[in-house]
Design a protein around this nucleic acid. Structure first.
Length: 595
RNA sequence: GGUUCCUUAGCUCAACUGGAUAGAGCAACUCCCUUCUAAGGAGUAGGUUUCAGGUUCGAGUCCUGAAGGAAUCACCA
């Protein structure tokens, strides 16, 4: 709010002093460094050509003009080309009044923009692991952030429910499962299926080893292993609609969906629509025809269809097999169109790991060449793998950090910590369990979201995720402290209505800093949406909580004798709590009243 | 081999998209609960931002090259 006003004032000053119109969006401010007086700093180095003066001269001229003509600017100082602006204290109080009367995010207008976010998109042959959690939290959070910025968002999950990998689980189950159900075994359905996926691979490895001993090369052996042949046979049968096979497929997928549902529900992730690859894997062939007609694709002698992307710095890429069957790309082309016909979006976000950077680049190029309106709005939210100290997680080796187990472990840690240091003796069992889960998920989500998505992460199962310092729990703890203050204010009937403090003229620096941070929230929100970056929100929340904690330790609230100051601090507390709650929601992190 | 991405304090990460003396947490060390929740706060120490050049008023950020790591380049999905 303040920034917008300052931008206009600078624009006006440039107009008057230098007869030059600066576009508003080009006028940037940075926070004045602590060692100088002031709040906002305008950098004048880039404008030498426009002003015809040295940067410090430009800064001085601007400073004098602003001080003279703008009421909220109390003073200025110039260090080289840096113009530091000192604002009237009343600006801060007025800003807090605005925050207090109406949270900043209520000013965000609805946009006429549809956004589809595809995320999670699991294979149905194994349970979700830590890598999926990163995906799920990213996708969910980006959806929330876009929606908070006024877009209409559709969250979709494209389930990879067919293919050779699923047949592998089915085959192993058929052989060794003895018809046992998850219920019989007392385990989740996705776990059962995952176990048989591992079992298949154990068998496969033994076969390969035997073949190698018989003199085959590793490569030959991997192609010839009988269990693999069987799986391929099964896939063929599935595609032909063989009843026994599809029945088994339906049964086992059903188990997996039950398991997934439970996990999604547990981690607080939701979808508006599910797509299943078993329904979409044949689509896209018409589009390939279209591309051929338009001359975008070409056919080789064997009938296979390709696109030549050498001019775009890539290779030739197959889009349809010689025998007319689909490849991965075919499906994705078809699915892209299908999504658009269901929900005519301007932006289409794909939350997919960075191992598919190349594939997604090709897909976007193809859709652009086909002239799809949504193609420019396709965005691959690429994220790095979560690795263990021993290296990459591999489901078929069983070396994964299981999502359900990790959450359960963290709930246990939360329980232990709460019993040690928490202040919730009078909680009912249900309330306590809720809290443990809230803290566990808060820590986990913050841990995964505060890092820039494209960076790979290292997770050491021996080091538990932080419950101290820069952590989700720190944010929650700050909120709980504030809640205690607000409860006490309510109980003792101390008002924090704007009228009770708006006449204040002097503020402490920690109060000012906090107001500034609070009023900057919409900028972070906007930035997060533009860059698809939940990490900006996470880092902002940490800064905010830290700034509040500082104030909390420095200044008394109920011990303050000046009633106006007391009210102002309560209003500040309230605004901080509301902002933490709002921002936390964007990351899927809930804020407790007590802990 | 081609392409893309990554490399910042002992460890895990920031750095407002090119701005002032690169900031946090963890770990170590000092202080602060007779005060609103110490899962906190204040402080000390820790850096040639992998390396070498370049661009400019100014580079962790942009360009070129080198080193190390990862992904990808399938008629697999």
């Amino acid at each position: 709010m303040i920034v917008q006003q300052l931008q206009k004032e600078i624009q006006n000053a440039f107009q008057t002093l230098f007869n030059h119109t600066l576009p508003l969006e080009k006028i940037d401010f940075q926070q004045t460094r602590k060692e100088f007086e002031g709040s906002y700093t305008f950098v004048t180095f880039p404008y030498g050509k426009i002003t015809g003066k040295r940067p410090d001269e430009t800064a001085t001229l601007l400073g004098e003009f602003l001080k003279e003509n703008v009421a909220i600017i109390k003073d200025f100082n110039v260090v080289k080309g840096f113009l530091n602006l000192v604002l009237e204290q009343s600006v801060w109080v007025k800003t807090l009044v605005n925050l207090n009367d109406k949270p900043v995010w209520k000013n965000i207008a609805k946009k006429d923009e549809k956004v589809m976010v595809e995320y999670s998109s699991p294979n149905t042959n194994k349970p979700l692991h830590l890598g999926h959690l990163r995906n799920n939290f990213l996708g969910y959070s980006v959806s929330e952030i876009m929606a908070a910025n006024g877009s209409e968002v559709m969250k979709v999950n494209l389930v990879n429910d067919r293919g050779i990998h699923i047949c592998k689980s089915m085959l192993a189950y058929q052989k060794h499962g003895e018809g046992k159900t998850p219920k019989d075994l007392g385990i989740k359905g996705d776990k059962l299926v995952g176990d048989y996926y591992v079992k298949f691979n154990d068998l496969f490895k033994i076969e390969v080893k035997q073949l190698v001993e018989q003199g085959r090369t590793q490569e030959q052996a991997e192609k010839e292993a009988p269990s693999l042949k069987e799986a391929q046979q099964m896939l063929l049968k599935w595609e032909q609609g063989d009843k026994e096979t599809t029945d088994l497929w339906k049964k086992m997928n059903g188990w997996v969906y039950e398991g997934f549902d439970e996990t999604y529900k547990n981690i607080g992730v939701t979808f508006d629509k599910f797509y299943y690859e078993s329904n979409t894997y044949l689509s896209g062939k018409d589009t390939v025809e279209e591309g051929l007609k338009k001359g975008i694709f070409f056919k080789k002698e064997d009938g296979s269809v390709w696109i030549d992307l050498t001019n775009d710095g890539l290779d030739e890429k197959l889009v349809l097999r010689g025998d007319g069957t689909s490849v991965y790309m075919t499906q994705d082309i078809g699915t892209a169109d299908l999504k658009f016909s269901d929900f005519p979006m301007q932006k289409s976000v794909y939350v997919i790991g960075n191992e598919q950077d190349y594939h997604m680049k090709v897909l976007k190029l193809i859709m652009q060449k086909l002239g799809r309106s949504y193609a420019d709005g396709m965005y691959h939210l690429s994220y790095g793998m979560v690795e263990l100290p021993s290296g990459k997680m591999k489901s078929r080796e069983g070396t994964v950090v299981d999502a359900d187990e990790l959450v359960a472990d963290m709930v246990e840690i939360a329980r232990k910590r709460t019993l040690e240091v928490g202040k919730v003796d009078d909680f009912s069992e249900e309330e306590a369990e809720n809290l443990y889960k809230m803290l566990a998920l808060g820590a986990l989500k913050y841990y995964l979201l505060r890092v820039e998505p494209k960076k790979k992460m290292l997770f050491d199962p021996n080091d538990s995720i932080d419950f101290q310092g820069n952590s989700g729990v720190y944010l929650q703890f700050t909120h709980a402290k504030i809640s205690a203050i607000l409860r006490k204010a309510r109980k003792t009937n101390i008002s924090h209505k704007s009228t009770s403090f708006e006449s204040l003229e002097e503020l402490e620096s920690s109060e000012q800093d906090l107001i500034r941070l609070l009023s900057d929230y919409p900028n972070y929100l906007n930035e997060a949406a533009e860059n698809y970056a939940p990490s900006s929100i996470a880092n902002y929340m940490y800064d905010l909580a830290k700034q509040y904690s500082k104030l909390y330790a420095e200044l008394p609230i109920f011990g303050e004798e000046n009633e106006a100051k007391k009210s102002l601090r309560i209003a500040l507390s309230d605004a901080t709590a509301k902002t933490l709650t709002h921002a936390g929601k964007l990351l899927g992190i809930e804020m407790p009243e007590r802990m």
